Simulated scan of single mutants.
Amino acid sequence: MQYHVNGELVARENATVSVDDRGFRYGDAAFETCRAYGGEVYRWQRHAERLQRTCETLGMPDAVPDDLALRVAETLDANDLEGAYVRTSISRGVQLGKLTPDEDVDPTVVVYVRPLPRGGVDGERVWDDPAVVQSVKTRRPPDAALPADAKTHNYLNGILARLELRTASSDTYQPDEALIRDTDGYVAEGSTSNLFFVDDGVVKTPAEGSLLPGITRELVIELAESEEFPVETGRYTLDNVRSADEAFLTNTTWELRPIETVDGIELGGGPMTSLLQRLYDERVETRCY
């Protein structure tokens, strides 16, 4: 494998960053997870725009290189990948070990890829089974504490949530995604996913403000609205989700993944989940193959 590090293709074993890099020291970095289908990054422009917004939030608006899309394409070509997980990371770069960042920024820019199967109508799922979801005690920090729409390297919140799953696990119960609530107790998101559930034919998802609004989440809402399915965003309790007719998770890699259980209560996918997955697959097929 080869990765793109600071403008150059580098063999995996040589793809390193400095111990003085602020992304390593403080999580002072922005990133985007994308997915390539047919050799092209799907919805690249939206990912690039969010990456730019995160860098602006971090006070380094000029950190995104103008040729980032070219670096991504070169990395895919160098590894001969048609289907791929693509992660672009931009840290503030190497600076002295102090919390206050320097005004001058020399960013560290990394493009990382790994193979994924074909997507679209004739594609394969990257997950083997529907998700087993467990609610956790870890709360999503409020937007006033950490900007909810900033996608940074600081994933401690999600890590703590995933660690709680170990405590909940047993020989017969193996949850693989955490459901995180906000500080008021309303459901927000998964540790690496957004949540949807269906109740009496209405597609519902937690409102923005206490969650990272995913690119796939956005597309699913667009697909549902284009079919004139009722879509609602709001504040929902765990009981609202547990009593839903069906539920699923979204992220760039999983696309749409049905939820099998929440806190041991059976939900499963359903006709709306299946239909939206088909619409998503058809959109990918049309745009990328």
Rank of each mutant, 00 (worst) to 15 (best):
L212P: 06
D263F: 13
D184F: 03
D80N: 15
S274E: 15
G27W: 03
G185P: 08
L275Y: 10
R87C: 13
R53T: 07
F197E: 07
R92S: 01
P65V: 01
M60K: 07
D149Q: 15
T75V: 08
E232P: 01
V41P: 02
S135W: 14
L81T: 13
E232Y: 00
Y280M: 13
T167C: 08
T16C: 08
L249E: 14
D263R: 13
E260T: 06
P141N: 14
T33P: 06
G209N: 10
V262P: 05
V262G: 11
L58P: 03
K204F: 02
T261F: 08
R12K: 14
E285I: 05
G123A: 04
R43A: 12
T252Q: 06
G93M: 03
N6K: 01
R25A: 05
L96K: 05
E208P: 08
L96Q: 05
F197W: 10
M272E: 07
D239E: 12
L238V: 14
G201P: 01
G209Q: 05
N157Q: 14
L179Y: 03
E260Y: 01
L146S: 12
Q134G: 08
T88V: 14
T167R: 15
E222I: 10
R139T: 10
R35E: 04
F197K: 03
L76E: 02
R22L: 03
A188C: 11
E82K: 15
F31E: 04
L156T: 12
V94G: 00
E82I: 05
D77G: 12
T75H: 03
G209K: 08
L238C: 08
A29N: 14
E222P: 08
R12L: 15
P117V: 02
E82T: 10
S169L: 02
H153V: 07
E266M: 09
D239F: 09
T100V: 04
A150D: 12
E228C: 07
F248E: 08
Y186T: 12
L163Q: 14
A188E: 07
D67H: 07
I159C: 04
V203G: 00
V110W: 05
D77R: 15
D122T: 10
T75C: 09
L195F: 04
A168T: 06
V198C: 02
L211V: 09
D239V: 11
S243E: 15
L58K: 00
S193A: 15
Q52S: 12
V110R: 04
F196E: 11
A73I: 05
S169T: 07
T183G: 05
G201E: 04
P61M: 04
G269L: 10
K204C: 13
S226L: 05
Y155Q: 13
M60W: 00
Q52D: 11
P107M: 06
L9E: 14
F248I: 11
Y42A: 11
G97C: 06
N157W: 09
G59F: 04
L96S: 09
G123H: 03
